[in-house]
Design a protein around this nucleic acid. Structure first.
Lengths: 358, 358
DNA sequence: GGTAAAAATGTAAACGTTTACATTTTTGCC
DNA sequence: GGCAAAAATGTAAACGTTTACATTTTTACC
C-alpha cells in the first residue's frame, strides 16, 4: 500500500454571502400559484384522467414556473406499495466485474422506467447483508433484487414471506419458492471441463468458491459429470474451496502449483479467483498454456488482453440484471402470479490459455 | 454477442396458501404494547436522555418483541435535513474499476455509520446525470458525492446553491466553491511521461478522455510540463481525445499504430482506454514493450496479470471514496464551514510495459 | 407534608403526498 | 330554463415519524 498524503488547503476567496435558503416548492405552492386545490395538482402529476384540459395546462404551467418536483419521500410514505419507484439491489461483491455487469443491467432498466436503485454490497458478510436488507425494508422499497449469501438465507426468506417482491439473481433459495434468474452453471462448468478433457487433460484442479453458495455446487456437478463422461475417476484432492476473492485465488493456486503431481489444468470458479490464480502462476514463472492450462468461470471485457488471452465461461451479467429488473417489475404489478425461474445460457470463450497435451 | 436463451418453467408444487400479510409494526404498535405514548417510544429510539431507565427498558423489550424497525421514509420526511441517513452517490462509469473502488470506499464509511447509499451511474450522459440529481433531491438525501460530468456542471452547481451538502470527487467545479477530493493529476501524468522520457522516448502519444473533463486537462498539463523539462517540443498531432471508454481506446490506438512515423510510447488517460489500446496493439501483433511502450493512468488489481504486466499511475480510489464520505459527513454536520480541497497523491507503478530505447 | 424545581411523559401539529368522499360545476336533454 | 347525470374540483384524513409545548410525576428540601 502506498503512503497517502492529504494536502489540505482552504479556499480563501470565500465569499460566503449567507446563501438565501431556496425552499423547494411543494404541492401547496403549486396549488396556490395556479389557484386550485392541492388534490388537483396531485391529479395532474399522476395523470389522473378526471381533470379538465384547461386546469391541467394551467397547473402544468405553474409546475414549470416553480420548477416543482414531487417529493419522492412523501410519495413513498403515503402510498403503501406500488408506484413509489424504488428498487433495492443487494449483491455479494461489487469488485467482481460480473456483478458490475448485473448492476448495469438493473440500472439500465430502472433508468428507463424512472426507478431509483438503492445498492448494498455485502462482501459475503452475512451481518452486512442482514443490515442492508433491514435498511431497504425500512426504506419501503417496491421490490428487491438480491444474490442471497447462500441457499438458506433467512433474511431473504423473510422478505419473501412478508410478501415483498423479490427476485433472486445468480443463486436461488432452497427452502422457498421465489423468482430466480440464473445461469446454467452445471452446463457451463461441464463445457469447460469437457473441453479440457477433449484436449488430453486428466488432472484438472478446481478452485471453487465456498460450497455454501449454490452456484459452486452446481459448477462442481458439471465438473463431475464431464469427468464421468470420460471415465476419469473423481479425485477430491483436486478440489479447493475457500472465499471468493483475489487473495484466495492466489493462495490456492500457489498451493496447487506446489503439488508433487501437479495438475495440467486449472478450472477456476470465478473472476476474482482466476485473476488471483493468474498472478500466482506468473509469480512462479510458470508458462501458460505450455506448462499449465487454465479456464475461468466469468469472462471479462479485458480477458483478451490478459497474459495469455484467457479462455473463459461467459455469463451474461448485463442481461441477467436487466431480466431480473423486468421480472421484479412484473412481480410488483402482480404479486400473486406463479413464480418464475429463468435460466440463461453460458458460452465458452476459447482463447489462448489452454492447449492440447500429450 | 452470444445468443441468449430464456428457458422458462414454472414451479408447479406451488402451495400458495394466502400469505397472511405480516404488517410491519410501527411506533403506535410499540406504544400500545408497552403502554406509553408514541412520543416516548420515539425518544427511546433516538436515545433521548430524558426518559427514565424503567420505561426505556420496558419500551426496548416491546421493540424487540414486535421486531420493530423505524421506518426510514417517515423519519426522512419528518426531520428536514440531518439524521435521515441517506447519501447520494453519482458516478460517471461504474464499469471503470477506479470508480468501483470509489464506491467501495464510500460504502465502507456509510456502512460503519449506518447510512444507506443511493447510487446513480450516468455513463457520461448529461441527461442521465441530471435525472439522477433530481431523483436524489426528491429523495431528500442528506448529502451527495458526485463526479461532475464537467467543470461547469449546472446540475451540481444548483445543488450546492440550494445548500445541499455536496462533495465532488475526481474533479471539481470551476465556477463555484465546493468540497473536493481528487488526485494530483498533473503530477501523476508528469511522473509517467518523465519516466518515459528518461528512458529515451521522444514521440509519446497521449490517448486522453474528453477535454471537457477537468481531470484530462490537468493530465495534459503534466504531459506538457515533462516534455518541456526535456526540451522536447509539444506536438499536438500526438494528442487524441474522445470518449472515455474501451471502444475509444481501441479505435484511437489502432489509428496511432498506423501513423507513418509511429510513436515509441503511448500514455493512456484512463483504465478503459488502456484496456482498449492493449487490445488494439495485440490485435496487430505488435510487441509490448519491444515495439511500443505503454503506461496507463489508473492501476487495476489485475494489472500484473496483463500481457505484459502493465505500468500504471495508481490512483487511490478507495481512499478517495472514503475521504469524500467523511468530508460529506462533516459538511452535513457543519454546513457553513470553509470548503476544503483534498489532493491525494498518485503512485507510478513500474512493471513490464515500458522499456528503454535507442 | 408542602412546595418549587426537575424529570418524565403525553398531546398534537407538522413533513408532502395520495385518495375516499363530498361538493360544486358542467353537460346534455327535454 | 330546468333537471339529472357526468365531470371536475375541493376537503380532510391518512402514511409513520419528530418535536415544541403542555401536562403530569418525581425529587429534594424545608
Amino acid at each position: 500500500m502506498p503512503k497517502i498524503c492529504f494536502l489540505k488547503f482552504n479556499s480563501s476567496h470565500l465569499s460566503c454571502k449567507r446563501l438565501h435558503f431556496i425552499k423547494l416548492s411543494n404541492l401547496k405552492a403549486v396549488a396556490e400559484h395556479s389557484k386550485v386545490s392541492i388534490a388537483t395538482v396531485s391529479r395532474v402529476i399522476n395523470n389522473d384522467p378526471k381533470v379538465s384540459k384547461d386546469t391541467m395546462l394551467k397547473v402544468q404551467a405553474s409546475i414549470a414556473a416553480l420548477e416543482y418536483k414531487p417529493n419522492r419521500v412523501a410519495q413513498r410514505l403515503r402510498s403503501t406499495s406500488k408506484k413509489t419507484k424504488l428498487l433495492g439491489l443487494v449483491i455479494p461483491d461489487i469488485q467482481n466485474p460480473f456483478f458490475v455487469d448485473v448492476v448495469r443491467g438493473v440500472e439500465d432498466y430502472a433508468y428507463q422506467n424512472n426507478f431509483a436503485v438503492m445498492i448494498g454490497n455485502f462482501g459475503q458478510d452475512e451481518k452486512k447483508e442482514k443490515l442492508y436488507l433491514d435498511i431497504l425494508q425500512s426504506e419501503n422499497i417496491d421490490g428487491l433484487i438480491v444474490a442471497p449469501i447462500h441457499g438458506k438465507d433467512k433474511g431473504v426468506e423473510n422478505l419473501v414471506k412478508k410478501n415483498i417482491p423479490v427476485v433472486c439473481i445468480d443463486r436461488g433459495l432452497t427452502d422457498i419458492d421465489v423468482d430466480v434468474v440464473k445461469v446454467d452453471n452445471e452446463q457451463g462448468a461441464f463445457n469447460a471441463i469437457d473441453h479440457l478433457l477433449s484436449i488430453g487433460h486428466k488432472r484438472i484442479a478446481y478452485i471453487s468458491g465456498n460450497f455454501k453458495i449454490p452456484t459452486y455446487i452446481e459448477r462442481l456437478a458439471g465438473y463431475k459429470r464431464a469427468l464421468n463422461d470420460y471415465g476419469i475417476p473423481y479425485d477430491e484432492s483436486l478440489i479447493f474451496a475457500r472465499d471468493t476473492d483475489y487473495k484466495s485465488g492466489f493462495e490456492i493456486a500457489s498451493k496447487i502449483l506446489e503439488l508433487k503431481e501437479r495438475p495440467t489444468a486449472i478450472f477456476s470458479g470465478n473472476n476474482l479467483l482466476t485473476l488471483g490464480a493468474l498472478e500466482a502462476i506468473h509469480a512462479k514463472g510458470i508458462k501458460i498454456p505450455e506448462e499449465i492450462s487454465i479456464i475461468g468461470f466469468d469472462d471479462m471485457p479485458w480477458s483478451i488482453s490478459l497474459n495469455p488471452p484467457l479462455s473463459a465461461v461467459r455469463q451474461p451479467g448485463f442481461d441477467m440484471g436487466r431480466k431480473a429488473a423486468e421480472m421484479l417489475y412484473e412481480r410488483i404489478l402482480n404479486p400473486n402470479s406463479i413464480k418464475e425461474k429463468v435460466i440463461l445460457k453460458t458460452e465458452l470463450m476459447l482463447r489462448k490459455s489452454t492447449t492440447r497435451i500429450e
